[in-house]
Design a binder for these strands. Structure first.
Length: 110
DNA sequence: GTTCTGACGGTGC
DNA sequence: AGCACCGCCAGAA
């Protein structure tokens, strides 16, 4: 069995997020089949800064497109990283979120 | 071993 | 339309 731990699965998907795109915790959880356990996804992101390679958790936002975990990045790091990729963030919220939304269930077409 | 929290989401009121 | 509560699963105290 692959040690495809739930956390590891999350990292894989997040790393597949194309530059300039964002996704939601629920979308990832849903893709992993853990629909409803979106909290686990966010919790997994807690280790995103210690796993290798670093997981672009800055591309993962909540359903509202709000950078809920920006505080965990240590300030506005998350917002700046997104800005570097062309994702405008205003008021801790992704601009044109629905337009930049990247759904693994669709893009990865499982 | 038990209890609580946690970077969310959906439904109910 | 906005606010509140409950539910999912796993790790940490």
């Amino acid at each position: 069995m692959e040690r495809a731990d739930f956390f590891d699965q999350v990292y894989q998907v997040v790393r597949l997020i194309p530059k300039g795109r964002v996704t939601s915790y629920g979308a990832i959880a849903n893709y992993l089949g853990a629909k409803g356990s979106s909290r686990m996804v966010g919790y997994a992101m807690n280790d995103a800064g210690k796993v290798s390679p670093q997981v672009p958790a800055h591309r993962v936002v909540n359903r509202q497109g709000l950078l809920t975990g920006k505080f965990h990045f240590g300030g506005d790091t998350m917002q700046q990283l997104l800005a570097e990729e062309g994702v405008l963030v205003e008021n801790d919220q992704v601009v044109n979120f629905k337009n930049l939304y990247w759904d693994p269930n669709i893009e990865l077409a499982l």
